[in-house]
Amino acid sequence: MSADVPVDWAELAPQLVDAARRDRAWYLTIARELVGPADRLAVDVGCGAAGMALAIARMMACGQVVAVDGHPAVVDLAQDHIRNAWSDPRIRVEVRHADIRHDIPALRETLDRPADLVWASAAVHHLGDQQAAISTLASLLAPGGRLALAEGGLPEQHLPWDIGLGDPGLEARLQSAQDRWFTRMRADLPGSRRMPYGWTEALRRAGLSPVTTRTTLDEQPPPLHDTARRAVLAHLSRRVGWLRPTGLLSAGDLDAWDRLLEPADEQWLGHRGDLFRLSARSVHVGVRP
Rank of each mutant, 00 (worst) to 15 (best):
R173Q: 12
M52W: 03
F182Q: 13
A150Y: 13
E201S: 05
H235W: 14
D162Y: 08
R193I: 02
M1P: 15
A280V: 04
R238V: 12
H225Q: 13
F182D: 13
V75A: 01
V74T: 03
P221T: 11
P89A: 01
A280E: 05
G63R: 00
T136K: 00
D258I: 02
L275P: 00
R96T: 07
A120N: 06
A202I: 06
L278H: 07
L224C: 09
G153F: 05
L41G: 05
D23P: 04
L170C: 09
A31N: 04
L249D: 03
L111G: 08
H97N: 06
Q178S: 14
P155Q: 14
L141K: 01
R281C: 08
L117Y: 08
G207V: 10
T29C: 09
R113V: 05
W242H: 14
I82W: 01
A206G: 09
E33K: 13
G166W: 06
I82Q: 00
L16F: 15
D218K: 11
D112N: 12
A138H: 07
R186A: 11
A3P: 12
N84M: 08
T29F: 07
I100L: 08
V285W: 00
H126N: 11
R186T: 07
S139E: 15
L248N: 02
A50E: 00
S279P: 02
S135Y: 09
E219V: 14
A187M: 11
H97G: 10
A251I: 06
I82H: 01
I100G: 01
L278Y: 06
V283H: 02
